[in-house]
């Protein structure tokens, strides 16, 4: 009979090691300050490019400068939701403990970016299109994205038990993810007032580099800000869950004593 000791369990993958809140918090603490500094630098470079280094558009004139916040906000509105959809899979399929924490942290940020996208789009549309709002496919699908974000935030608050809330929110998030390709391809599938994609195209961007570079830098600034706020909000959520656990333990001790 072979009495050799059982083989050591395989080391967990890096993304599973992050399931330990202490490991995640330590990593977030190391990343937060450098990322915040990078965010400020990216906004400084991006805004300088948007206002001083890029020319006015031959058709839109100076109003084109609204594009430097409108387009990155639209990218982040969709990026945040795509991240939430991946987190939803993490909750339902892999049961990763941080997946629902990430999902909960991202929803208000995504809603904020979507609101910026809608407001700046309306403010740009008034002088360019002659209207604040048009019920075309792109605008309407982004408005639906905003409403889905609000619905997800409301669902988190509606269910007390965190595990049940996470699963319900994950299912709603995955259903809402069907809206992402609709937003992206709405300008191709339907006749819309909104112009077609000008950056992420198979045949390359159609924007002049003098405008494309500040736009990409502003996109990077928005992305970095999203990452900084995500880390901060995830740390907050982990702290709130620990507070709840400590309160339950204290209450049980008090009840037993």
């Amino acid at each position: 009979m072979d009495l050799a000791p059982p083989p050591a369990p395989p080391a967990p993958a890096a993304w599973m090691r992050l399931a330990n809140p202490a490991v995640f918090n330590a990593l977030a603490d190391r990343l937060l300050l450098p990322l915040a500094v990078l965010t400020l630098a990216a906004f400084a470079f991006g805004l300088h490019g948007a206002f001083f280094a890029s020319p006015a558009d031959y058709q839109q004139g100076e109003t084109v400068r609204i594009m430097y916040i409108h387009v990155p906000a639209a990218w982040l509105a969709m990026f945040a939701y795509a991240g939430m959809a991946v987190s939803a899979l993490g909750t339902l399929v892999f049961r990763h403990p941080l997946a629902d924490v990430a999902q909960k942290a991202a929803a208000p940020l995504g809603a904020g970016f979507t609101l910026i996208c809608l407001l700046t789009g309306a403010i740009w549309g008034r002088p360019m299109w002659g209207t604040w709002w048009e019920w075309d496919a792109r605008l309407t699908s982004v408005l639906i994205l905003f409403l889905v974000y609000l619905g997800i935030m409301a669902l988190w608050r509606a269910i007390d038990e965190p595990g049940r809330a996470a699963r319900a929110v994950a299912i709603l998030t995955l259903v809402g993810a069907a809206n992402l390709p609709i937003i992206k391809f709405s300008v191709d599938w339907w006749y819309t007032l909104h112009q077609p994609a000008a950056v992420f195209r198979i045949d390359g961007p159609t924007i002049h580099p003098s405008m494309l570079v500040p736009l990409l830098v502003m996109g990077l600034a928005f992305l970095l800000l999203h990452l900084v706020l995500m880390l901060l909000r995830m740390k907050t959520e982990l702290a709130l869950r620990r507070i709840e656990r400590l309160q339950i333990v204290a209450a049980e001790r008090g009840g037993a004593g």
Partner: peptide, 27 residues
């Protein structure tokens, strides 16, 4: 057009400030 640009950047700054402020206060 300057008014529209100011309104767009002002609204964006307000919303971003609210997002950052709420996250910092919550933490």
């Amino acid at each position: 057009h300057a008014g529209f640009i100011l309104a767009a950047y002002g609204a964006t700054a307000l919303i971003l400030a609210a997002m950052i402020g709420a996250s910092l206060l919550g933490w």
